[in-house]
Simulated assay, not measured.
Amino acid sequence: MKNLVIDIGNSRIKSALFEGKDLIGDHSFEDFDAALRFWEAMDFQACLVSSVRFTQEELAEKISFPFVFLSHDSHLPILNGYSTPKTLGLDRIAAAIGAWDLAGKKSVLAIDLGSCITYEWVDELSIYRGGAISPGLQMRAKAMNSFTARLPLVALDQKPEDALGNSTVSCMQSGIWYGVEYELLGHIEAYRLKIPEIKVYICGGDSLSFESLAKDHIFVVPNLVLHGLNCILNHNVE
């Protein structure tokens, strides 16, 4: 069965076509009407939409084909052990489910490198337990510029070759890039000490900048959230 999954964010729209669990292709849009024309020309049997921009009622007026709307009341393939489940971002739980599914429904740590860095843990009982949230690359750069009198807003086009900066700008760039890298490695190691067999999946807009971390237990999957949305859709239509 072919599935269309759609993730409507505040500024960008992402969608992907799956055949069962296999990703056929994914696309990104800035304009909703252009995205809608693209989807309406596609061949699929089921659709799931996750949206922070539109309500289910608003989408029902815009979209001509049937769809499952992801909400905090949706049926999930894992149990949600978060103490405040209604406050849990749907992209966070989707990333966790995508990692859990790709790992063969075993204990996983999903890390999303977006505006914020989020850490999501699903245990060996397939229960989402929570994780952590910290500032992302751009947020760290903007914070240093906003909360100081003299530090500039630095560009983060590429990772510095060395953690040692030799100017104010290069020191800031090194501090941001390597601060994130060391944070990632620290979180991963803390989980591995408790769960040696845990697998780690890294996704998000900045994930490709940290591909060097990939190894036998760490996987970089930029479209992990879309995989999670597809897993949720399969769970709801099966």
Rank of each mutant, 00 (worst) to 15 (best):
I188Y: 01
N234F: 00
D206W: 03
V154F: 04
M42Y: 08
N145D: 09
D216T: 12
A163M: 10
A149W: 09
L233M: 08
L224E: 03
D7W: 06
G98I: 07
T84M: 14
N236Q: 15
I133Q: 14
W121R: 05
F147H: 15
K21W: 10
F65L: 11
N166G: 08
P160Q: 01
S107Y: 06
S115G: 10
L226W: 03
Q45N: 11
G204D: 05
L76I: 10
T84H: 13
K14G: 07
H227E: 02
L156P: 07
I97A: 00
M172D: 01
K106T: 11
E57K: 11
E57C: 04
V108H: 02
G136F: 01
A163V: 15
G186D: 02
I232F: 03
A60C: 07
M172H: 00
I198A: 01
C47Q: 04
I218Y: 02
C203N: 07
H227F: 08
S170R: 03
I176N: 00
L224R: 07
W121N: 07
T87H: 12
P152I: 10
I195P: 05
I97M: 03
C203E: 04
I78S: 05
R53N: 08
E19F: 10
F29H: 08
M42R: 15
R140Q: 15
E197P: 00
Q173W: 07
Q56N: 12
R37L: 12
D43R: 13
D112H: 11
N3E: 02
L90D: 04
I176Q: 01
S126H: 00
M139K: 11
L164D: 07
Q158M: 10
V237Y: 07
H72E: 09
I188H: 06
M144F: 02
M139Y: 07
F67Q: 05
K14I: 06
V5F: 01
W100D: 02
H75C: 13
N230S: 14
D43N: 15
G114I: 06
G89E: 15
G89A: 14
N230T: 08
S209N: 10
H27K: 12
S170I: 09
G179C: 03
V108M: 03
N3P: 05
S167Q: 10
Y182G: 09
V220R: 03
H27R: 14
W121D: 06
V122C: 07
L17W: 05
A94N: 09
C203V: 09
F29I: 08
K199E: 13
S170F: 00
L76E: 05
A35G: 04
A190Y: 12
L4I: 00
L193I: 13
G175T: 03
A143M: 13
S167C: 10
A190S: 12
I218H: 05
L36C: 09
P222F: 02
A35S: 13
R37T: 13
A214S: 11
K105M: 10
T148G: 06
I13D: 00
R12S: 13
P222L: 09
G25D: 11
S51T: 01
A94S: 12
Y82R: 02
I111T: 06
S134L: 14
N10W: 09
E58P: 03
L193D: 10
A95H: 06
D26S: 14
N223I: 12
Q173R: 09
K105R: 15
N234D: 11
S11G: 05
K194P: 01
S134R: 13
L125R: 15
G130P: 01
